[in-house]
Design a protein around this nucleic acid. Structure first.
Lengths: 168, 168
DNA sequence: GGGATATTGTTCGTACCCAAACGACGCAAG
DNA sequence: CTTGCGTCGTTTGGGTACGAACAATATCCC
């Protein structure tokens, strides 16, 4: 068996052979493992083809992006929007501030808050990267029919909603 | 605006307002960002509800799982099957060996190789976790119709294949 | 006003994550 | 038989990633 075959179809077949007699929901298992594999593939592809040349990581980009979209953000909202913990955000922001792309400003009204905003260099970087990034995103899903893409996105959204609904 | 609204729909709307006049492919952008968000949500949910009580991380579980499915693996194949780099795998395997779940064995025929295999404790752990894990997977996708789930999985698979095809 | 309670961002500890450099090993051509 | 090239797993260095504990600040309730 050649290398490259340890993915998807072959893994599924191996799993079926291993646990075929157990009461397993294969459709769910396949969906979740494919979900994770696709997310990793997309992140790696986007990182290598767009972000690497600008010396910025995936998470760093996501943080810059949400700060851009929302015209500045408090830390607590930025971590939520970026989908990372506030502890992780602290470290990522440290990196972005050091790189000269982000500014920290302690809140004036509520001194617990920290407001994040783009520096001019950060703004320029975001604008430079954004279109390239979207072009690669389009390429990633280019083999999927519009109808299927719609169904896929809707399904993914339901997973997110299911998790958020059962989070107590 | 209340907290919790910095996700999905609201972010999309903010993005549209910010870049509405640029030639952006919104369907692709929405698909990729939702993909990443769903993968993170699924991983967090599965980690907290199943893996945490067994003191094992997501990546650690994936590695144990692929070694189980394939009845032992060489390191190079394990990293591919687990979707992580070989450098990462070295560290994860260190952890799993220390925990007593995995064995390292230098290849006899080709001394560059390292074969991974489950210890009895590791085998017991995998079997214990597997069914719980699958039950939560099923819950994650329980709100998705079978037809949509099929379409979603097919779409995700096409993303993986697109990335693998353009990797040179 | 003052004590209990909640919320903010940070720190700490542990573990992952990867590209690049590295040393050990295999292999084939001369 | 040795020289060169390719492949293996590991190490290195910088950067996430998160839960828990923390100090500072805000707010509530009497």
């Amino acid at each position: 068996m050649k290398l490259g075959d340890y993915s998807l179809a072959e893994s599924e077949e191996a799993m079926r052979a291993k646990v075929g007699n157990l009461p397993i929901d294969f459709a769910s298992a396949r969906a979740v493992s494919t979900l994770y594999r696709a997310a990793n593939a997309a992140r790696t592809k986007l990182t290598n083809s767009v972000l690497r040349e600008h010396d910025i990581t995936w998470t760093g980009w996501v943080v810059l992006w949400v700060v851009w979209i929302w015209d500045g953000l408090e830390t607590r909202r930025a971590s939520e929007a970026a989908g990372i913990s506030k502890a992780t955000l602290t470290g990522v922001v440290n990196t972005l501030v050091t790189r000269g792309w982000l500014d920290r400003a302690r809140g004036t009204e509520d001194k617990r808050m920290v407001n994040l905003s783009l520096t001019p260099a950060g703004l320029e970087l975001v604008q430079t990267i954004f279109e390239k990034f979207n072009a690669v995103e389009a390429q990633l899903v280019s083999q999927i029919s519009p109808e299927r893409l719609e169904e896929m996105t809707a399904g993914l959204r339901q997973i997110v909603e299911t998790v958020e609904a059962t989070r107590d």
